[in-house]
């Protein structure tokens, strides 16, 4: 992955943001039921991809993010079903559990460098996933858990209905994005990037690298867990297959194709790639090949991802506005 380019450019101020938001608020009233469900998946995937990017800014391309998403889903689902914890309390608790698990599995691997680290994270992710598969009690084995409680009725709004849940997940996504944005722009976010650019220099200025890596993994894990909670109380069921290596590959594809240099990359990645995913349903068998190839090609020819391409185009346009082209 190439570098973090910190070049300044404006995507266009607040106006487009307000436009997009009002669009998102109107959309569920006009779309078919199925498409509203699809839209909710976008929100969940954007939370996943953005929280993953936070970890990537420290250069830890771990492969257990999807399993932490699962930890959130299982925890939240089981708390609600077995212990009667209210759904809206269970979801953040699922996030907390995912954050803790993320920290626990990163801890023994902190001294393992580069590739060994990535592989080991894959191994430990499988360990967790296989635990769900192996222990029918309490995880339900390969069939997973069903009859997970729906969200309740609050102030006359039934959150198990499609449109209220749409707004609930939209709200959660925006909140997560705001928090991640604040971290990104803070000194902590800068320290993460500093570590990935020059770990030796970062350590020499007093940045405790293991602590920051653990922090990134657990914060990222927390949000992945929240995404899992959002998923499980909409599906009403959960099983280990949802969190296997294939889902991890799709996460990588969103993040890589979108670009990891800025905050907006993963959003672009999910928006474009998941739309293509939905559109290519008729080609379901060869679809993975297209996605795999597109990631390979982006890595080789477009290291900044789609976001890099767009921002480059914008800066070029701005330049052309400022300096009139000279006719020759």
């Amino acid at each position: 992955m190439s570098s973090h380019s910190m070049k300044k450019y404006k995507i266009g101020g607040l106006a487009p943001l307000i436009l997009v938001l009002s669009g998102l608020c109107l959309v569920p009233f006009f779309l078919r039921a199925y498409l509203v469900e699809v839209a909710m998946m976008y929100f969940i995937y954007i939370i996943l991809a953005q929280s993953y990017r936070l970890i990537v800014t420290v250069h830890d391309w771990q492969l257990y993010h999807i399993v932490l998403y699962g930890v959130g889903a299982y925890t939240s689902g089981m708390l609600a079903k077995n212990l009667g914890v209210p759904v809206f309390v269970a979801i953040p608790l699922g996030g907390a559990m995912a954050g803790l698990v993320g920290m626990a599995i990163t801890l023994p691997l902190l001294r393992t460098k580069g590739w060994g680290f990535y592989i080991a994270t894959y191994g430990l992710a499988e360990l967790i996933r296989l635990t769900w598969l192996k222990f029918r009690n309490p995880f339900g084995g390969s069939t997973g858990i069903i009859d997970i409680p729906w969200p309740p009725v609050i102030a006359g709004i039934d959150f198990s209905d499609r449109i209220p849940y749409y707004f609930f997940s939209l709200g959660v996504m925006l909140l997560v994005m705001l928090m991640l944005y604040r971290i990104e722009k803070s000194r902590i976010g800068d320290s993460f990037k500093a570590i990935s650019m020059d770990p030796e220099l970062a350590a020499s200025t007093g940045i405790n690298i293991p602590r920051h890596r653990l922090m990134a993994c657990s914060i990222g894990g927390f949000f992945a867990g929240v995404a899992g909670g959002l998923l499980v109380h909409r599906l009403g069921a959960v099983d280990p297959k949802l969190f296997n290596i294939t889902t991890t590959l799709y996460l990588l594809i969103w993040v890589v194709v979108g670009g990891t240099n800025t905050f907006w990359g993963p959003i672009i990645g999910v928006s474009v790639m998941h739309t293509l995913f939905e559109l290519s349903r008729p080609l379901i068998e060869i679809r993975p090949m297209f996605f795999g190839l597109s990631m390979v090609l982006v890595l080789i020819f477009l290291p900044g991802g789609l976001e890099g391409l767009i921002s480059k185009a914008i800066t070029r346009l701005q330049k052309r506005d400022r300096v009139a082209p000279v006719e020759t």
Partner: peptide, 21 residues
């Protein structure tokens, strides 16, 4: 991708899909 460990690693992850299909 010479020397870019992470990209090489992720690219081969994409290859898994290609071979399988």
């Amino acid at each position: 991708l010479q020397g870019d460990v992470v990209s090489g690693f992720i690219a081969t992850a994409g290859l898994m899909f290609v071979f399988e299909v």
